[in-house]
Design a protein around this nucleic acid. Sequence first.
DNA 1: CCCGGAACCTGAAGGC
DNA 2: TGCCTTCAGGTTCCGG
Length: 275
Amino acid sequence: MPELPEVETIRRAIEPCIVGARISDVSLLDPSIAGPEGPESLQAAVGATVRAVLRRGKHLILLLNGNRGVVLHLRMTGAILLQEPATKARVRAVLSFSNGEKLLFNDMRRLGTIRHYQDMKPLLQRLGPEPLDEDFTADSLKESLSRHRIPIKAALLDQHIVAGVGNMYADEALFLARIHPMTPARNLDIPRVASLWKALRQVLTDAIGSKGASVSTYALPNGEHGTAHFGFNVAHKKGEPCPRCGMALQRVMVRKRGSYYCPTCQPPSGDTAGG
DNA sequence: CCCGGAACCTGAAGGC
DNA sequence: TGCCTTCAGGTTCCGG
């Protein structure tokens, strides 16, 4: 499941291959990948030069002239490949470039999208802060969380509150910060928010260093696997002993999302709803 | 505004 | 063995 570290890893891999090149062809083997705008809308990108490859949250952005952009979102099972896959591929789209490079959009479940934006500004502005940027501080996170009474786990998954965090890294950050996933966001005091802020940045930075977590279908554009999942403490580890205290890790549903945590290290606070 | 739930999608896993 | 149901989760949309 590609989250910020996985998309950032992909960005770094493809950037040197396509920056400065011209998009020579956009081929949609599965037209539904273009979303409601329809496959024709993507033809507007043909002929444009890739000025930069950016990441914003979980969005991968090929920045074109005039603040236009081609935006790829991998959703659950999407992957970007720079070469023909060895086996079991579900290639939904192929972007070809003037320098001979090809980007293959592989996606088993067909939830991923590719879109052309005439102006990137609306997308960039509606997303929350980048958790690894300097303007994302413990104070700004506290200010944002204080406006929501939803469970902190749900708040971390809200892309308007912080961009790029998904189910795995939300659970890992909450474990490091010793916060129960059901705790109402606005009830976290400054010290606990500061712990969470630090944990979020730690978890995401470490995962980028490990080139992402290859659970499910995620792989690098050259087919290699990331290793971040080997460092996980709680994600997808129901029943295994907590690495800190040894207690069996539990899994609960928070807003329909499987949430892994240690019942001892992350006890429900007195004000935790639904505990 | 705030919040919960459905829908999208397909392969794996579990029940009978 | 095999059919059927449920689950996985990022995002958007809809309704109370």
